[in-house]
């Protein structure tokens, strides 16, 4: 438990002091949300209808851009080798690093939805629902991405491969995230049905992601 907290604090400090990947993914999120109305035209009715989908796509892409550094930075400066040698199970290491990464990238995105929702003319209920689905759903994206990040940690051009590997696995999360947000805006399906499936997907991703990423890190010696 002590090593878990130490790793978490270390990664949060690194994120705050070096490079600032958290603010970067937030800026990227904003850039995508701004870009889409330029492509579609400023039709507020259309935008409010597809608003949750726009926010989810933006969140998915901004989660992706930070992921390739998740284990690569540690691989480069040698700290990953030390972590492999330490008695702490690699699953705990992965869990701490993923949690830190999500606190820095996923959580700010979910919290920023009320602000960015204004740009796509979301109703207050829509904003609340989208924020809730992102809050629950983005951990799944980070966990699934962690498997890809661990597999590509020592590759020189890992970023592109990472996206190709990981995107197919993110599709179910995207489907149910957007479905839940749309259900809150009105529709035949109650909000709880897709939302609970989204919660289940996050729990499954947490298990698969933790053990998968740890196995990938272990085999990459």
């Amino acid at each position: 438990m002590g090593s878990f907290r130490a790793l978490l604090v270390r990664d949060l400090k690194l994120a705050a002091r070096v490079g600032g990947s958290g603010t970067m993914s937030l800026v990227f999120f904003l850039a995508i949300v701004t870009l889409i109305p330029f492509a579609l035209g400023p039709d507020l009715n259309l935008l409010s209808r597809i608003g949750p989908a726009i926010l989810w796509i933006a969140a998915l892409l901004s989660t992706l851009i930070g992921l390739d550094r998740l284990f690569q930075a540690d691989e480069e400066d040698g700290s990953l080798a030390l972590l492999r040698l330490s008695p702490v199970p690699l699953e705990i290491v992965v869990l701490a690093k993923v949690l830190a990464h999500w606190l820095v990238t996923g959580l700010p995105l979910a919290l920023a939805v009320p602000l960015f929702g204004l740009l796509v003319a979301l109703s207050p209920e829509g904003m609340l629902a989208t924020a809730a689905t992102l809050l629950v759903g983005t951990p799944a994206l980070t966990f699934l991405g962690a498997v890809g990040a661990a597999l590509t940690a020592s590759l020189r051009r890992g970023g592109l491969i990472l996206s190709i590997i990981v995107l197919p696995f993110m599709i179910p999360t995207l489907i149910f995230g957007v479905a839940a947000a749309n259900a809150a805006l009105g529709g035949t399906v109650p909000f709880a049905t897709p939302f609970l499936i989204l919660c289940a997907l996050t729990l499954i991703a947490a298990v698969v992601g933790t053990f998968g990423a740890a196995a990938a890190l272990r085999s990459d010696v």
Binding site: L151, I165, F169, G212, A215, A216, S219, D220
Partner: peptide, 17 residues
Amino acid sequence: NRAARAVSILTLVGAVN
């Protein structure tokens, strides 16, 4: 050998589909 181990993990994760 390293490629095989990396792909194995990816294959097993993808088996869900």
